[in-house]
Amino acid sequence: MSDEPLLSVRDLEVVFHTERERIHAVDGVTFEIREGQTVGLVGESGSGKSVTARSILGLVDEPGRIEGGEILYRGEDLTEDNWADHRGDIAIVFQDPTNSLNPVYTIGNQIEEALRIHQDLRGRAATDRAIELLEDVGIPDAPRRVDEYPHQLSGGMAQRAVIAMALACDPDLLVCDEPTTALDVTIQAQILDLLAELQAEQDLAILFITHDMGVIEDATDWVNVIYAGEVVERAPTEALFDHPAHPYTRALLESIPGRTDPDERLPTIEGEVPTPTGPATDCRFAPRCPEAFEDCRSVAPEHVSLDGDRSAACLLHDPARSDGGERQ
């Protein structure tokens, strides 16, 4: 692992322009991924995690626009329309495999197309490579499956095929946008195993986006918790689960059923994720935060460094504003 991060997102801002307002879907998100590392981005719907993923690939569509910050891939800023140069370096796997595959082409056709574009492979060579890729992602009887259509595959198999397609361009970074959400638990376990295996074999860096804390715990080395367009906490996975520093992270972990006594009521977070329509002037979690105090409603918290590289954007940890950090 070199010191230079593979991908570094700094102060990313993505704004959606609607008729009535500007929505800051991503509002100053900063994080890094190093080679061979798996970094998680976890948050609820509307938190801006998928928009972040799409920005890295340059896939933000109208009315959304990247309005600030930089996305550095090996030191080169992608936001200056450099995506085309790195098409093969970063690949994405979407949530619903059946939507990511074109139903009128065989799996083979689709992988071969990716191979033609990124590796200039054609004909028999491309077919052989496609079969190899399918075998790599654990599809049995690949020589036959390569000629099948997406509807002939089960959900898990289809997601494997999508991953094979993403690998066709031999990427350094794989962005997985809720890759297991549409799948059953046993299939989810297979896909998580597969990703871990691929990572070990090919030294892939993975950005793992999900709303499922359990998946994050299993699959990632580092976690960024995102809330209303902002990263509120970043930490090594184990540390985060042991001692969540931000009240939101804490509440999120507590509200997962199965971790608490079934006879007790589940702890909840009242209210809903707000839609950020302007620059932050306060802590966006304050209205729902059980530990909010006066300053939370008037100061936008900055990230405070905590022990072991981790940080949290919460005034509770700001020594100047509260008695600071006593919760760790």
């Binding site: 929505i23 879907a25 719907s45 509307g46 801006g48 928009v51 959304g64 329509t277």
Partner: peptide
């Protein structure tokens, strides 16, 4: 607006 903001979510 909220729906648009969630578009990618």
């Amino acid at each position: 607006g909220a729906a648009a903001g969630r578009g990618g979510g």
